[in-house]
Amino acid sequence: MKIIRHKSELRDLTISWHRAGDTIGVVLTMGALHDGHLSLVKNAQSRADRVIVTIFVNPRQFNNPEDLAKYPKTEDSDAHILESLDIDVLYVPEPGEIYPACFSTTISVSGVSDGLCGSDRPGHFDGVATVVTKLLLQTDADYTFFGEKDFQQLQVVRRVVADLDLKTEIVACPTVREDDGLAMSSRNLRLGTEAREVSPVIGRVLESAANVIGRGGNVAQALETACQALLVAGFDEVDYFELRSDPDLQLLMSADRPGRLFVAAWLNGVRLIDNTPVKAASHAPIEAGRIPEPV
Protein backbone atom coordinates (compact mmCIF):
# COMPACT_ATOMS: atom_id res chain seq x y z
CA MET A 1 0.00 0.00 0.00
CA LYS A 2 1.34 3.41 -0.98
CA ILE A 3 0.51 6.48 1.09
CA ILE A 4 0.20 9.52 -1.18
CA ARG A 5 -0.33 13.12 -0.07
CA HIS A 6 -0.07 15.08 -3.32
CA LYS A 7 -2.48 14.98 -6.25
CA SER A 8 0.31 15.19 -8.84
CA GLU A 9 1.81 11.91 -7.63
CA LEU A 10 -1.64 10.32 -7.48
CA ARG A 11 -2.47 11.48 -10.99
CA ASP A 12 0.68 9.92 -12.44
CA LEU A 13 -0.31 6.61 -10.87
CA THR A 14 -3.96 6.64 -11.96
CA ILE A 15 -2.98 7.54 -15.53
CA SER A 16 -0.70 4.50 -15.64
CA TRP A 17 -3.44 2.26 -14.26
CA HIS A 18 -5.97 3.39 -16.83
CA ARG A 19 -3.44 3.01 -19.64
CA ALA A 20 -3.00 -0.60 -18.49
CA GLY A 21 -6.77 -1.09 -18.68
CA ASP A 22 -7.36 -1.22 -14.92
CA THR A 23 -10.48 0.19 -13.29
CA ILE A 24 -10.29 2.28 -10.13
CA GLY A 25 -12.60 1.97 -7.13
CA VAL A 26 -12.55 4.71 -4.49
CA VAL A 27 -13.81 4.87 -0.91
CA LEU A 28 -13.99 8.41 0.48
CA THR A 29 -13.63 8.72 4.27
CA MET A 30 -12.75 11.17 7.01
CA GLY A 31 -10.83 8.47 8.87
CA ALA A 32 -11.62 6.87 12.25
CA LEU A 33 -12.35 3.73 10.24
CA HIS A 34 -14.79 1.08 11.40
CA ASP A 35 -16.28 -2.09 9.92
CA GLY A 36 -18.75 -0.04 7.88
CA HIS A 37 -15.88 1.60 6.04
CA LEU A 38 -14.13 -1.73 5.64
CA SER A 39 -17.24 -3.23 4.05
CA LEU A 40 -17.06 -0.46 1.43
CA VAL A 41 -13.40 -1.28 0.83
CA LYS A 42 -14.21 -4.96 0.32
CA ASN A 43 -17.01 -4.04 -2.08
CA ALA A 44 -14.54 -1.89 -3.99
CA GLN A 45 -12.02 -4.74 -4.17
CA SER A 46 -14.68 -7.05 -5.58
CA ARG A 47 -15.65 -4.53 -8.29
CA ALA A 48 -12.47 -2.73 -9.34
CA ASP A 49 -8.91 -3.68 -10.30
CA ARG A 50 -7.34 -0.96 -8.16
CA VAL A 51 -8.61 0.52 -4.89
CA ILE A 52 -7.92 3.94 -3.39
CA VAL A 53 -9.11 4.95 0.08
CA THR A 54 -9.02 8.65 0.92
CA ILE A 55 -8.83 10.24 4.36
CA PHE A 56 -9.60 13.95 4.53
CA VAL A 57 -11.43 15.65 7.40
CA ASN A 58 -13.27 18.25 5.37
CA PRO A 59 -13.70 21.50 7.30
CA ARG A 60 -16.30 22.83 4.86
CA GLN A 61 -18.92 20.26 5.84
CA PHE A 62 -18.81 21.15 9.55
CA ASN A 63 -21.18 23.98 10.41
CA ASN A 64 -20.09 23.71 14.06
CA PRO A 65 -16.37 24.41 14.73
CA GLU A 66 -16.53 22.45 18.00
CA ASP A 67 -17.76 19.39 16.10
CA LEU A 68 -14.79 19.67 13.74
CA ALA A 69 -12.36 19.99 16.66
CA LYS A 70 -13.79 16.89 18.33
CA TYR A 71 -13.78 14.71 15.21
CA PRO A 72 -11.44 11.74 15.85
CA LYS A 73 -8.16 11.75 13.91
CA THR A 74 -6.59 8.28 13.77
CA GLU A 75 -4.46 8.20 10.63
CA ASP A 76 -1.80 5.81 11.94
CA SER A 77 -4.26 3.14 13.09
CA ASP A 78 -6.36 3.65 9.94
CA ALA A 79 -3.30 3.10 7.76
CA HIS A 80 -2.46 -0.09 9.66
CA ILE A 81 -5.97 -1.44 9.11
CA LEU A 82 -5.95 -0.61 5.40
CA GLU A 83 -2.51 -2.11 4.88
CA SER A 84 -3.84 -5.41 6.21
CA LEU A 85 -6.57 -5.28 3.55
CA ASP A 86 -3.96 -4.90 0.80
CA ILE A 87 -5.44 -1.84 -0.90
CA ASP A 88 -3.35 -0.05 -3.52
CA VAL A 89 -3.28 3.53 -2.26
CA LEU A 90 -4.17 5.50 0.85
CA TYR A 91 -4.61 9.10 -0.28
CA VAL A 92 -4.27 11.58 2.58
CA PRO A 93 -4.16 14.96 0.84
CA GLU A 94 -2.69 18.00 2.50
CA PRO A 95 -5.34 20.75 2.98
CA GLY A 96 -3.79 22.80 0.20
CA GLU A 97 -4.30 19.94 -2.26
CA ILE A 98 -8.07 20.28 -1.77
CA TYR A 99 -8.44 23.97 -0.98
CA PRO A 100 -5.48 25.89 -2.40
CA ALA A 101 -4.97 29.59 -1.69
CA CYS A 102 -7.82 31.77 -3.01
CA PHE A 103 -10.10 28.75 -3.51
CA SER A 104 -13.53 30.27 -4.18
CA THR A 105 -15.75 27.61 -5.79
CA THR A 106 -18.67 25.92 -4.04
CA ILE A 107 -20.91 23.23 -5.50
CA SER A 108 -24.48 23.47 -4.26
CA VAL A 109 -27.20 20.89 -4.85
CA SER A 110 -30.86 21.82 -4.43
CA GLY A 111 -33.80 19.48 -3.94
CA VAL A 112 -32.39 16.39 -2.27
CA SER A 113 -30.27 18.56 0.06
CA ASP A 114 -33.35 20.37 1.41
CA GLY A 115 -34.70 19.34 4.81
CA LEU A 116 -33.38 16.61 7.10
CA CYS A 117 -29.66 17.28 7.74
CA GLY A 118 -29.76 20.07 5.16
CA SER A 119 -31.94 22.13 7.49
CA ASP A 120 -30.13 21.33 10.71
CA ARG A 121 -26.59 21.71 9.30
CA PRO A 122 -26.50 24.83 7.08
CA GLY A 123 -23.82 24.59 4.40
CA HIS A 124 -23.07 20.95 5.20
CA PHE A 125 -24.06 19.51 1.84
CA ASP A 126 -22.34 22.31 -0.08
CA GLY A 127 -19.15 21.21 1.67
CA VAL A 128 -19.87 17.55 0.91
CA ALA A 129 -20.66 18.17 -2.77
CA THR A 130 -17.55 20.30 -3.24
CA VAL A 131 -15.05 17.95 -1.59
CA VAL A 132 -16.54 14.82 -3.17
CA THR A 133 -16.28 16.37 -6.63
CA LYS A 134 -12.64 17.34 -5.97
CA LEU A 135 -11.72 13.87 -4.70
CA LEU A 136 -13.49 12.01 -7.50
CA LEU A 137 -11.60 14.09 -10.04
CA GLN A 138 -8.27 13.74 -8.24
CA THR A 139 -8.59 9.97 -7.90
CA ASP A 140 -10.01 9.52 -11.43
CA ALA A 141 -12.53 7.08 -9.95
CA ASP A 142 -14.47 4.67 -12.13
CA TYR A 143 -16.53 3.56 -9.13
CA THR A 144 -17.06 5.10 -5.72
CA PHE A 145 -18.75 3.39 -2.79
CA PHE A 146 -21.10 4.98 -0.25
CA GLY A 147 -23.03 3.50 2.65
CA GLU A 148 -26.79 3.95 2.87
CA LYS A 149 -26.60 5.15 6.49
CA ASP A 150 -25.90 8.64 5.14
CA PHE A 151 -28.72 8.27 2.63
CA GLN A 152 -29.29 11.98 2.02
CA GLN A 153 -25.57 12.42 1.37
CA LEU A 154 -25.74 9.50 -1.08
CA GLN A 155 -28.54 11.22 -3.01
CA VAL A 156 -26.63 14.51 -3.06
CA VAL A 157 -23.56 12.77 -4.50
CA ARG A 158 -25.68 10.97 -7.09
CA ARG A 159 -27.10 14.33 -8.18
CA VAL A 160 -23.62 15.88 -8.46
CA VAL A 161 -22.30 13.01 -10.58
CA ALA A 162 -25.33 13.09 -12.87
CA ASP A 163 -25.52 16.88 -13.24
CA LEU A 164 -21.79 17.45 -13.79
CA ASP A 165 -21.31 14.48 -16.14
CA LEU A 166 -18.68 12.88 -13.93
CA LYS A 167 -17.65 9.47 -15.21
CA THR A 168 -17.85 7.82 -11.79
CA GLU A 169 -20.47 5.17 -11.06
CA ILE A 170 -21.94 5.48 -7.57
CA VAL A 171 -22.33 2.14 -5.78
CA ALA A 172 -24.64 2.16 -2.74
CA CYS A 173 -23.89 -0.35 0.03
CA PRO A 174 -26.17 -1.43 2.92
CA THR A 175 -25.78 0.11 6.37
CA VAL A 176 -23.49 -1.92 8.60
CA ARG A 177 -24.60 -2.26 12.22
CA GLU A 178 -23.14 -3.27 15.55
CA ASP A 179 -24.39 -6.52 17.08
CA ASP A 180 -26.95 -4.52 19.09
CA GLY A 181 -28.27 -2.78 15.98
CA LEU A 182 -26.61 0.64 16.27
CA ALA A 183 -25.56 1.92 12.85
CA MET A 184 -21.77 2.11 12.71
CA SER A 185 -20.34 5.63 12.71
CA SER A 186 -17.06 7.27 13.61
CA ARG A 187 -19.07 9.52 15.95
CA ASN A 188 -19.98 6.49 18.08
CA LEU A 189 -16.46 6.72 19.54
CA ARG A 190 -17.60 9.84 21.40
CA LEU A 191 -20.46 8.13 23.22
CA GLY A 192 -19.74 7.44 26.88
CA THR A 193 -20.45 4.04 28.43
CA GLU A 194 -23.98 4.88 29.59
CA ALA A 195 -24.93 6.60 26.35
CA ARG A 196 -23.57 3.69 24.34
CA GLU A 197 -25.93 1.37 26.22
CA VAL A 198 -28.89 3.61 25.36
CA SER A 199 -27.90 4.30 21.74
CA PRO A 200 -29.31 1.11 20.10
CA VAL A 201 -32.81 2.30 20.99
CA ILE A 202 -32.68 4.66 18.00
CA GLY A 203 -32.52 1.73 15.56
CA ARG A 204 -35.25 -0.25 17.35
CA VAL A 205 -37.64 2.72 17.48
CA LEU A 206 -36.92 3.43 13.80
CA GLU A 207 -37.74 -0.14 12.76
CA SER A 208 -40.87 -0.22 14.93
CA ALA A 209 -42.17 3.01 13.41
CA ALA A 210 -41.44 1.76 9.89
CA ASN A 211 -43.37 -1.42 10.65
CA VAL A 212 -46.37 0.55 11.94
CA ILE A 213 -46.41 2.87 8.93
CA GLY A 214 -45.89 0.04 6.45
CA ARG A 215 -48.92 -1.75 7.90
CA GLY A 216 -51.17 1.25 7.43
CA GLY A 217 -50.72 3.11 10.71
CA ASN A 218 -51.23 6.87 10.88
CA VAL A 219 -47.90 8.47 9.91
CA ALA A 220 -48.14 11.59 12.07
CA GLN A 221 -49.10 9.60 15.15
CA ALA A 222 -46.39 7.01 14.54
CA LEU A 223 -43.73 9.70 14.24
CA GLU A 224 -44.88 11.52 17.37
CA THR A 225 -44.90 8.26 19.33
CA ALA A 226 -41.41 7.44 18.04
CA CYS A 227 -40.02 10.82 19.12
CA GLN A 228 -41.47 10.38 22.59
CA ALA A 229 -39.99 6.87 22.82
CA LEU A 230 -36.51 8.27 22.14
CA LEU A 231 -36.86 11.00 24.75
CA VAL A 232 -38.16 8.55 27.34
CA ALA A 233 -35.22 6.24 26.60
CA GLY A 234 -32.76 9.02 27.44
CA PHE A 235 -32.09 10.91 24.21
CA ASP A 236 -31.68 14.64 24.78
CA GLU A 237 -33.32 16.02 21.64
CA VAL A 238 -34.77 14.83 18.32
CA ASP A 239 -33.82 17.00 15.35
CA TYR A 240 -36.18 15.18 12.99
CA PHE A 241 -38.14 11.98 12.56
CA GLU A 242 -39.64 12.04 9.08
CA LEU A 243 -40.98 9.90 6.25
CA ARG A 244 -39.48 10.82 2.87
CA SER A 245 -39.91 9.43 -0.64
CA ASP A 246 -37.17 7.32 -2.19
CA PRO A 247 -35.16 8.49 -4.10
CA ASP A 248 -36.19 12.18 -4.37
CA LEU A 249 -36.60 12.71 -0.60
CA GLN A 250 -39.90 14.57 -0.79
CA LEU A 251 -41.70 14.83 2.54
CA LEU A 252 -44.54 12.28 2.81
CA MET A 253 -47.57 12.47 5.05
CA SER A 254 -48.79 9.02 4.03
CA ALA A 255 -47.05 5.83 2.90
CA ASP A 256 -48.65 5.83 -0.53
CA ARG A 257 -45.36 5.06 -2.30
CA PRO A 258 -41.99 3.58 -1.38
CA GLY A 259 -40.04 5.75 1.01
CA ARG A 260 -37.62 5.89 3.89
CA LEU A 261 -37.93 6.82 7.50
CA PHE A 262 -35.18 9.18 8.71
CA VAL A 263 -34.15 10.13 12.24
CA ALA A 264 -31.53 12.39 13.81
CA ALA A 265 -31.30 12.63 17.58
CA TRP A 266 -28.82 13.84 20.20
CA LEU A 267 -27.41 11.63 22.93
CA ASN A 268 -24.73 12.81 25.34
CA GLY A 269 -23.65 15.57 22.94
CA VAL A 270 -23.42 13.23 19.93
CA ARG A 271 -25.76 13.53 16.97
CA LEU A 272 -26.85 10.09 15.73
CA ILE A 273 -28.59 9.53 12.41
CA ASP A 274 -30.24 6.48 10.90
CA ASN A 275 -32.78 5.52 8.25
CA THR A 276 -34.68 2.49 7.01
CA PRO A 277 -36.87 1.67 3.98
CA VAL A 278 -40.66 1.80 4.29
CA LYS A 279 -42.77 -0.05 1.78
CA ALA A 280 -46.01 1.45 0.56
CA ALA A 281 -48.63 0.80 3.25
CA SER A 282 -50.55 -2.45 3.01
CA HIS A 283 -53.31 -1.01 5.19
CA ALA A 284 -53.49 -4.13 7.30
CA PRO A 285 -55.50 -3.57 10.50
CA ILE A 286 -53.35 -1.96 13.18
CA GLU A 287 -53.82 0.36 16.10
CA ALA A 288 -52.78 3.67 14.53
CA GLY A 289 -49.49 5.03 15.70
CA ARG A 290 -48.77 2.25 18.15
CA ILE A 291 -45.05 1.50 18.46
CA PRO A 292 -43.85 -1.42 20.56
CA GLU A 293 -41.68 -0.51 23.53
CA PRO A 294 -37.97 -0.77 22.64
CA VAL A 295 -36.23 -3.63 24.41
Rank of each mutant, 00 (worst) to 15 (best):
G214W: 07
T144Q: 06
S16E: 14
L249Y: 10
F62H: 02
C102L: 07
V201E: 07
T168F: 03
D35T: 01
I98Q: 10
P95N: 07
L206F: 00
L10S: 06
P72F: 05
K149N: 02
S104K: 14
K149E: 14
G259Q: 00
K2F: 01
I291A: 01
L90Y: 01
V53D: 02
R257Q: 14
A129F: 10
A220N: 15
L116R: 08
L182E: 13
R190Y: 15
D239F: 00
A195H: 12
E237H: 08
D142L: 07
D248R: 09
D88A: 11
M1S: 09
R187M: 02
P122F: 00
L90D: 07
R19N: 05
E178A: 15
K149P: 09
R158L: 05
R290V: 09
V109P: 14
A44N: 06
F145L: 01
F262I: 07
A141I: 13
H283V: 00
T29K: 08
R47E: 12
D248L: 02
F151V: 00
I286N: 02
V219H: 03
L223T: 14
R47N: 11
G123R: 12
E66I: 05
T175D: 09
C102W: 15
L135Q: 05
G203H: 12
D150A: 12
E194H: 11
V51Q: 04
C227G: 10
N188Q: 15
N58L: 10
P294H: 13
A101H: 15
T144S: 14
L38P: 14
F145Q: 03
G123P: 02
V92S: 05
Q138K: 11
H34F: 03
Q138Y: 01
L10M: 05
R11W: 04
K73M: 13
L191K: 15
H6M: 06
I52S: 08
K279G: 00
L136T: 10
K149M: 12
L135W: 06
A69M: 11
D78Q: 10
L243T: 08
P292L: 06
P294V: 13
L90N: 01
S186F: 09
H124L: 13
L136V: 04
L135D: 09
H18N: 04
R244L: 08
Q152N: 07
P247R: 06
Q152P: 06
A210F: 14
V157T: 01
P294E: 09
R196G: 12
R260L: 03
I55Y: 03
K2H: 06
E94Q: 10
G31N: 00
T193L: 15
S119K: 11
L191S: 06
A20H: 04
Q221I: 14
N64K: 04
L272Y: 12
N43W: 00
D76C: 12
T133S: 09
V128A: 12
L267A: 08
Y71T: 00
A220E: 13
L38D: 10
P59I: 05
V270W: 04
